[in-house]
Design a protein around this nucleic acid. Structure first.
Lengths: 253, 253
DNA sequence: AAAACTTGACCGACGGTCGGTCGGTTGTCA
DNA sequence: TGACAACCGACCGACCGTCGGTCAAGTTTT
């Protein structure tokens, strides 16, 4: 039996299916035959839409990049906020897939962090960076201009911050396939890492230490939940802190 | 005709050959058949020494990590230097393959940065980090103790610095396959990046800005030469600076 | 309005390649 | 001389990507 759909829909279906299979089995382990079997289409149909398995990854990275960019751009471009506010909102968004995001979205992000998929990660990262970097750079430049920030080079600062975001990847990667016990330790390390990253960015931008706050236990846990579905609640290491949503504590400068 | 060698030698030969082919063709594009053909050995011989192509990568990453670690560890552990000196020597070593290193060594490092080999890079990086991190951490901790440095968490600081080193990879990767014209621009960006990285580490460790200096045109150019063999001399952007060899300019604190 | 033609989504058998296996052979050393 | 490591190469199965072809829905021609 033959089912005809528009190219756009089919492409999305292929992307969705691929992300699912890559997420559960990894990139290498997933075959094109599996993908087409799951969608009940033929080999030819696949190659009609994508010219190779590699091409599929490319498209996947692009879509992922667009998703992230769309979610952050409007904040970075919001004229009603000043540079500092925009930055802190942006940073809180960048710590990936907010807890409120539905499971489907989470699943779409997971493969990026899977152990075998550094491939996918690199491409996504590059695609994301190309969109986010200029915006972030302008934002920082603006902050430097009005002396909110103190940094020598907005371009490099933006690059550095973007790159720094990637430093949590090894931790998240390790989360996949970690035992529940290890997972708890890993999450604690993740929280420490994020906290430290906050201070690093503070220093890069020359703002008072503690101004930026990356840690949001809610988000961290939901992120962890993606990696290890059955995970019992973890005691946050600093339970006295209120769950800051938009974590910017502005100091008098 | 049959040639018998000790396992140790054969393994090194395989590694050397693999690194060469991965370097010229990338990991995926290189087949085991090519490797064994180049060495005039059989399929069976290969699988006698390494259990898979992946295993070969593992060994490659390990060897690379050992090479880097060996070259830097003795500096980090040199008791005759103080924390600051050791760190600046370490950093100058970490910007890879010193210019004096012979071409063979350079070739061994190049594949790590090739476009298709993010795989290799990630593994090597992890292996290097696992060796270097504890040493670097202790070093920073020591510096914090005697108030040379000012940082909240030596562990995280070490991780961050190590991770930051990787931020030049996209640039170097781009160098492969760039036209001579593009290469010049890329090298300039690389220099800017390194210079900025120096200030970032300064700030992370809370030492006066400009204390650490990553840029060493000699090293950068030789690094670039690996990627693009025929490259004419590039005018450094700051020709007035003397070619600092061991680039630590200690300020009064 | 019917026939002829174009388009593009879709089919699935097939080729070629590549990673990996296996039974057997050769050299070496105790 | 026997045990064990190094080595051989024919062979296997799985996988990616190709290619000739189908089919239905327009579009143009007559």
């Amino acid at each position: 039996m033959r089912v005809v759909k528009s190219a756009e829909i089919r492409k999305q279906e292929l992307l969705d299916c691929a992300v699912q299979l890559f997420g559960t089995q990894g990139y290498e382990a997933t075959t094109i035959n599996q993908i087409i079997a799951a969608l009940n289409i033929s080999k030819g149909a696949f190659y009609h839409h994508y010219s190779s398995k590699e091409d599929l990854v490319e498209a996947l990275a692009e879509r992922h990049a667009r998703q992230v960019a769309d979610r952050t751009r409007h904040v970075l471009e919001d004229e009603s906020l000043d540079a500092f506010e925009r930055l802190s909102v942006f940073l809180s968004m960048m710590r990936m897939s907010k807890s409120e995001a539905h499971a489907g979205m989470q699943a779409a992000f997971a493969p990026i962090f899977q152990p075998g998929n550094s491939h996918l990660y690199e491409r996504s990262q590059a695609a994301i960076a190309s969109v986010i970097r200029p915006i972030l750079r302008d934002l920082i430049a603006e902050g430097i201009a009005d002396r909110t920030f103190d940094s020598a080079d907005p371009d490099e600062a933006a690059d550095t911050i973007l790159h720094l975001m990637g430093s949590i990847r090894p931790l998240i990667t390790e989360l996949f396939g970690a035992s529940p016990l290890e997972a708890e330790a890993l999450i604690e390390r993740l929280v420490r890492r994020l906290r430290f990253l906050g201070t690093v960015v503070d220093r890069i931008l020359g703002i008072p230490e503690g101004s930026l706050e990356f840690v949001d236990h809610e988000a961290v846990l939901s992120m962890a939940a993606v990696c290890r579905p059955g995970l019992r609640g973890v005691e946050p290491s600093a339970p006295d802190l209120p769950p800051v949503r938009l974590s910017a504590t502005r100091d008098a400068r």
